[in-house]
Nucleic acid binder design. Structure first.
Length: 432
RNA sequence: GGAGAGGUGCCCGAGCGGUCGAAGGGAACGGUCUUGAAAACCGUCGUGCCAGCAAUGGUACCGUGGGUUCGAAUCCCACCCUCUCCGCCA
């Protein structure tokens, strides 16, 4: 949610920035309700003041009948004003919540994801002396993926993952957890990219996979609800990404300035209904209802927020470099970064089986937009309270990451070479 | 799932219908004392919203949401959470 004061001060800017995100919300209407709200609030507070003064005057003794009659009258008019106020406030809040975060000025303006820009291309797609297969073909031949039985048990877009593919996944998890919690690795990334950020390592976290409606909504990640799994008879949802449960962890807290940034590397299984994607990416395990993910989440000071965003991207790139997977860094345009985002990038990994770069990572910078409703604040050294700035970024998705590995590292025989950095985590195995 | 206890400020904890935003203690911060520190003593010390350039004023908030009342932290109802015991269970 945006700061209403900011909207009052910059109505044209907010209107324009909302349009750039294809979000239709009338700022004029919002401000009209804001004005009404303040007027009614003033009236209500005046009436309450009178009530409080009268109650104070009769302290300790029963008021006279006359006093009670006039107090009842006062109460009636207060109730009226309060009812009206609550109606106006509900509508006001609904509109305010619809206003998207303001994109930073360096975010490309665009109408659809086609307007995203390739910021850079890293690594050369491998050249094969045979026709590269898709991960689905390789994995099926190896007995790594069983979607038929999964369909029997749970339906489409589920899979039993088996054998060496399971081991590969655990190797990746170990590798990333090791690196992100390692001081030398963090120092190296900062130095290589000339970043001015804290050099605090990440804390590994296994979060809950469910989240309450209230907090999901406050994160502004509940919508579109059609893509979320709701738990029957409970006020709970299955999280669609670890950042949903990591970012909400410190809701309603006041953090110490000295404790920031809080950096977490979470591992969680994420769930998506994939509503409206029927028939899309049905092969293999590219688009699943359930997939594991390693996700970074960071809460920090406002002035450090953008550098932190760049830092998380630098880590994403570093990991891809170490895994030696070719990729493109995509500067997402205003229409594609998402409602709570001030900035966002994707990484698309090269997938030889599809002869295309496909999305594997995303990095989101929310400024204080999420923190405002989550009420995650920091007590500054000078005693002031501020909202934190939040950042999240995929460290590596464990469906699409392994897909990229399988397809880029495939051999003529249908085997898959293990990336060097993962070999120590695979018992030294070089090929699977 | 059953029985019980409880949710009050950064923390502990009192209040159980009337200036209560809330005693007391601790922590923190500022000061006095001290060569310095500790101790002691003095002082400061919640947040949101509304109005205001500001000082400040007003209002709301004692788990959440309703209700009773002239008046609710205090009474009633529902829900959420925590703890203890029993049952079940990886």
């Amino acid at each position: 949610m945006l700061d209403i004061q900011f909207i009052r001060d910059n109505p044209e800017l907010v209107e324009e920035k909302s349009q750039q995100k294809n979000v239709k919300v009338s700022i004029k209407e919002l401000l009209r309700f804001d004005e009404q709200r303040r007027e009614l609030l003033g009236k209500a507070e005046e009436l309450r003041q009178t009530r409080n003064q009268q109650a104070g005057a009769t302290k300790g003794q029963r008021p006279t009948d006359e006093q009670i009659v006039s107090a009842k009258k006062l109460k009636d008019s207060l109730t009226k004003v309060e009812d009206e106020l609550s109606k106006v406030e509900t509508h006001y809040l609904k509109l305010l919540k619809q206003v998207p975060n303001v994109a930073l000025d360096n975010v490309p303006v665009g109408k659809t994801e086609d307007d995203n820009q390739v910021a850079k291309t890293v690594g050369e797609p491998p050249v094969f002396d045979f026709k590269p297969k898709s991960h689905a073909v390789i994995a099926e031949a190896k007995g790594w993926l069983d979607k038929e039985r999964a369909a029997k048990v749970a339906g489409s877009r589920f899979a039993y993952v088996k054998g060496d593919l399971v081991k590969l996944q655990f190797a990746i998890i170990q590798f990333i957890m090791d690196k992100l919690s390692d001081q030398d690795f963090i120092d190296e990334v900062i130095a290589e990219n000339n970043l001015e950020v804290s050099n605090k390592p990440f804390l590994p976290v296994l979060p809950p996979y469910m989240i309450r409606t209230e907090l999901y909504d406050a994160m502004d990640r509940l919508e579109p609800r059609d893509d979320r799994y709701k738990i029957d008879d409970e006020d709970l949802w299955l999280q669609g990404s670890a950042e949903h449960v990591l970012g909400s962890m410190h809701a309603k807290e006041v953090l110490d300035e000295a404790s920031l940034p809080l950096r977490y590397i979470g591992y969680a299984t994420s769930f998506r209904r994939e509503a409206g994607t029927y028939g899309k990416d049905m092969e293999g395990m590219f688009r699943m209802h359930q997939f594991d993910k390693l996700e970074m989440e960071s809460l920090g000071l406002a002035e450090a927020g953008y550098q932190e965003h760049l830092f998380l991207i630098a880590i994403q790139e570093k990991i891809m470099d170490m895994l030696e997977i070719p990729y493109q860094l995509i500067a997402k345009c205003t229409a594609d970064i998402g409602k709570p985002n001030a900035a966002g990038v994707d990484i698309d990994a090269w997938m030889p089986g599809q002869d295309a770069y496909r999305e594997t990572h995303t990095a989101d910078y929310m400024t204080d937009y999420q923190a405002r409703r989550l009420q995650t604040r920091v007590r500054r050294a000078d005693g002031k309270l501020e909202l934190v700035h939040s950042n999240d970024a995929t460290a590596l998705p464990l469906s699409r990451g392994p897909i990229a590995i399988i397809e880029n590292y495939q051999t003529k025989d249908g085997d898959v070479q293990v990336p060097k950095v993962l070999q120590p985590y695979m018992g030294g195995k070089q090929t699977i």
